[in-house]
Design a protein around this nucleic acid. Structure first.
Length: 485
RNA sequence: GGCCCGGUGGUCAAGCGGCUAAGACACCGCCCUUUCACGGCGGUAACACGGGUUCGAUUCCCGUCCGGGUCACCA
């Protein structure tokens, strides 16, 4: 009988969800779900100084909108609560004291000032703590404790030898123990450090797979030493390659604000669909066995496996995300698309009421970012002032000489129309081209320009006329004719 | 700087000793067409470098170079 797989997403409430974090959450979710396991949410708020109001809600909202539903967490409970570290505060000290008893940790009374001085006086970057309190006489420790001297608890690293661990994606990694700092376990405020709380929580919550960014690769030996000191089973480590951004000079570095939108909310506000974001980031650092690219979350759950995770960092490509977004937009029903377009329609049209289904249908094939919509349809609300040169188009064979009569003929034909709908308008204009003996484009171009005032529009003359409605459409056409005379 | 990790086209990436080195995005061209898109077809473009091992290295080993990460009472 093998243990149930349990993964956890353990963000700290910083106020926004970086895509790197989101991808970590996604992979944690996928590893758990693909193995029939449990996905846990734990909030890591041990840094009391960096608390951000409302930050936890952002985590809930993001996870929910992304579809990464957790099985246990602060909001829904579970058998391993509490799921907020600050509420677990009292659990950690006893574990640290146990370590002291085992001679794997020690009290340190060094002041922050002394530590700062140490750093300043050192010429080597990363010189670290000098282990000043590591071998304090027991009596001194007792006395300091009795007198209430502030202290931290530090991990006692072996001075010799090396520590080796297995990572599911990076393989065997060995680090010399001499490289390891005597890191702090319990801070002066009584809170555990991230590293310590992590180990205690992961163990007490029965986490089987520790999934996190590769920035933790080099500190993992410290974790292992802790597990060993307690005599606990070591979890499966799954370190993920980092997500990078491309700088203007061509170099890359950790994805940051200057590269563009970096949080889930930013991306959504920039017109990207949650499904597209998830699909895209799933493929940033993981590849399926086949060539498939389009995946819903449940399809990902079926196909995901740890051995498809790559080792090298990947650059976040907004172009590719846009492509995914366009693909998702195209697979929606028009009704659904019209629904997500609603706020953007409103922004462009204000109070003006137009058929949103018709608008949506001309936009669906040409939209990759929802935020592009307003400027594409603004001309429906208000026709821009345009130059009559727009009527001239070589490919459509329209010139300032033939356009007036072309447009006049179009107006006459359209005014004779008894019903104003897509098919009638279409047949009317196509018929006109035929009777005039010109190409469809030659008859359409002047009409579309006069109706829109733009050379490039979503949809053609027929669609625009239809959406505009008879009255407004004819009004614009006549105005166009005046402009030409 | 020490340590850890990585290095296939501009980007994401297959590949896991023998291939004309996939595919996708982006870019370019052609077709379709009522502008633009969509769609279809085609094209440019890659194994960082040097040594080994081997009959044979993109693939295994070593070195160099380059890139990233990490060295907090932050997570």
């Amino acid at each position: 009988m093998s243990k149930t797989v349990r993964t956890r997403f353990a963000p700290s409430p910083t106020g926004f969800m970086h895509v790197g974090n989101l991808r970590t959450a996604l992979y944690e979710y996928l590893i758990a779900k693909s193995l029939g396991g449990t996905f846990v949410l734990r909030i890591e708020d041990t840094d009391q100084e960096r608390k951000v109001e409302g930050a936890v809600d952002i985590i809930y909202n993001t996870l929910r909108r992304a579809g990464l539903i957790h099985d246990e967490g602060p909001d829904i409970g579970g058998n391993y609560g509490p799921y907020v570290q600050s509420e677990r505060k009292d659990m950690y000290l006893p574990y640290a004291q146990e370590l002291i008893k085992k001679d794997k940790a020690y009290y340190c009374f060094c002041t922050k000032e002394r530590l700062d001085m140490l750093r300043e006086n050192s010429d080597e970057p990363g010189a670290g703590y000098d282990r000043h309190c590591r071998d304090l006489p027991a009596e001194t420790v007792e006395e300091n404790l009795r007198n209430g001297v502030p202290y931290v608890i530090r991990q006692k690293m072996p001075l010799e030898g090396s520590t080796t661990f297995e990572d599911a994606v990076y393989g065997t990694i060995t680090v010399e123990n001499s490289e390891l700092q005597d890191q702090i376990l319990i801070k002066a405020d009584g809170f555990p450090t991230y590293n310590f709380a992590n180990v205690i929580d992961d163990h007490t919550m029965n986490i089987t797979h520790v999934v996190r960014g590769s920035e933790y690769l080099s500190s993992t030996p410290k974790y292992n030493l802790l597990y060993e000191a307690f005599g606990w089973d070591i979890p499966v480590y799954v370190h993920l390659p980092l997500i990078m951004g491309k700088n203007d000079d061509g170099t890359i570095s950790k994805l940051a604000k200057r590269h563009g939108a970096t949080s889930f909310d930013d991306l959504v506000n920039n017109g990207f669909l949650p499904e597209a974001i998830i699909n895209y980031i799933a493929l940033l650092g993981w590849a399926p066995k086949d060539n498939r690219e389009m995946f819903t979350l449940s399809e990902l759950t079926e196909c995901f496996s740890i051995d498809g995770i790559s080792k090298s960092p990947s650059v976040f490509d907004y172009d590719k995300l846009e492509w995914f977004n366009g693909e998702y937009i195209k697979t929606m029903t028009v009704e659904k698309f019209a629904e997500v377009c609603e706020p953007y329609f409103k922004k462009a049209l204000g109070d003006k009421q137009l058929d949103s289904i018709k608008l949506a249908s001309i936009l669906q094939q040409r939209t990759t970012k929802l935020t592009d919509i307003p400027e594409k349809i603004a001309f429906f609300a208000e026709q821009p002032d345009y130059d009559k040169e727009l009527f001239v188009n070589k490919k459509s064979k329209t010139t300032l000489e033939n356009v007036p009569s072309l447009l006049k003929a179009g107006i006459d034909a359209l005014e004779a129309l008894s019903s104003w709908d897509h098919d009638s308008i279409h047949d009317c204009l196509i018929g006109l081209a035929e009777t005039l003996g010109v190409k469809n484009g030659t008859a359409m171009w002047p009409v579309r320009i006069a109706a829109s005032g733009m050379t490039v529009t979503p949809g053609g003359a027929v669609e625009i006329l239809d959406i505009l409605g008879r009255e407004e459409a004819l009004k614009r056409l006549h105005k166009g004719l005046e402009k030409l005379s």
